[in-house]
């Protein structure tokens, strides 16, 4: 496997009166060629900011702190500036955003907006760029592509717009595709189609995909690995199958318990108590401690990511127990869960 992206100790900070906040605080992950990694978490956990940092698009006045590493192949992204930085945007990493309505410019045609991305990176003529744009529309499954090139975003449906966004992200043939909540703004019926398009492209082009989502439901069967984020940190990372079979971090377990299941015994949904604290109110020690049903004295200290199985790590002191095992026995003793069962 070729490693295409390596992120280590990514810290993003914003100035506040009397110091700096770190909405992303020491995030590390890597991406291999042809692989899909899902970055899962609730809003405010720092996952979108993490994705923006990959292209150095962190909004002002945010900063990527010294000591962070973003290694793109043999390129040190954090050392780039000016023209060199522009040349990786779209060319090495393509991005898709959450809301295709507001992420497309309303005054330019679809063809314009795709061809522009081609022209920014590839040595082709304007006519060739438009021809490529038409090909890209075909590839993302838009029929009648020649006519659609001349359409404006407002003339297209939501699903169609997101396909156009994907075509834009692909316009300079990047090796990595970052999809930040690509289906959140879409109807459920369209969601599956869009995910299908992404998966298809990954397979055909051998791209690596970073899928950012709050929805565990779309992760199964699509991502090779999952990293769960909470309060600016990755709290659990595992191969998708392992995570679904043995969610180990109490937060991950809580996420699963709050998702309705179609198969298996009928149980009451148990939401995680409390709400995600804002970066101003992150507790010391384990950041999930105030909401954790299994918090214990050691949770007062900040845990590191610890191995609980092959390729399976979590940021929880419970991992220190007797290795990965403890988890299975911990799960049924989940206090709210044991009361489960709809009368």
């Amino acid at each position: 496997m070729t490693r295409v992206l390596d992120v280590r100790d990514l810290r993003i900070s914003f100035p506040v009166s009397g110091g700096r906040l770190h909405p992303v605080d020491g995030v590390s992950f890597s991406l291999d060629r042809g692989e899909t990694l899902a970055l899962v978490g609730e809003s405010g956990c720092g996952k979108s900011l993490t994705s923006l940092a990959l292209l150095r698009l962190v909004p002002e006045p945010g900063r990527i702190d010294a000591g962070s590493v973003i290694q793109l192949g043999d390129t040190d992204v954090l050392a780039l500036r000016g023209e060199a930085l522009r040349r990786i945007r779209g060319k090495r990493i393509g991005m898709i955003f959450q809301d295709p309505m507001t992420s497309l410019n309303p005054v330019f045609t679809v063809g314009d907006q795709i061809a522009e991305g081609v022209l920014a990176h590839l040595p082709v003529s304007k006519a060739e760029a438009w021809e490529r744009a038409r090909g890209l529309l075909d590839e993302v499954g838009i029929s009648d592509s020649a006519a659609r090139l001349r359409a404006y975003p407002h003339q297209l449906s939501g699903g169609m717009r997101q396909r156009v966004m994907i075509a834009i992200a692909l316009s300079a043939e990047p090796e990595i595709l970052v999809a930040d909540e690509p289906t959140t703004a879409l109807d459920v019926t369209v969601q599956a189609q869009i995910l299908e398009v992404l998966d298809d492209l990954r397979r055909r082009r051998g791209m690596a995909v970073l899928l950012i989502t709050h929805d565990l439901g779309i992760v199964a069967g699509r991502a090779d690995r999952v990293a769960v984020m909470y309060a600016g940190q990755i709290v659990e990372e595992a191969r998708t199958g392992d995570l679904f079979a043995r969610p180990s971090h109490p937060y991950t377990q809580g996420l699963f318990a709050s998702v309705p299941r179609i198969t298996g015994p009928v149980t009451r949904l148990t939401p995680i108590r409390g709400t995600v604290p804002p970066p101003t109110a992150w507790p010391s020690g384990c950041r999930f401690r105030p909401r954790c049903p299994q918090a214990f004295d050691k949770s007062e200290l900040p845990p590191e990511l610890m191995t609980v199985g092959e390729g399976h790590r979590m940021r929880c002191w419970l991992a220190e127990g007797d290795g990965p095992i403890g988890m299975a026995s911990v799960l049924p003793s989940h206090p709210e869960r044991s009361e489960g069962g709809i009368p």
Binding site: L57, R87, R89, G94, N105, V107, G117, A120, I168
Partner: peptide
């Protein structure tokens, strides 16, 4: 502040294109 400006930057357009073509035009 709008998302399509982020899109324009993420595409790798030059700052001039981002500001005048995508920003000012709107």
């Amino acid at each position: 502040r709008l998302p399509y400006i982020v899109t324009a930057r993420a595409k790798g357009l030059s700052e001039r294109q981002v500001i005048w073509r995508h920003g000012w035009r709107n």
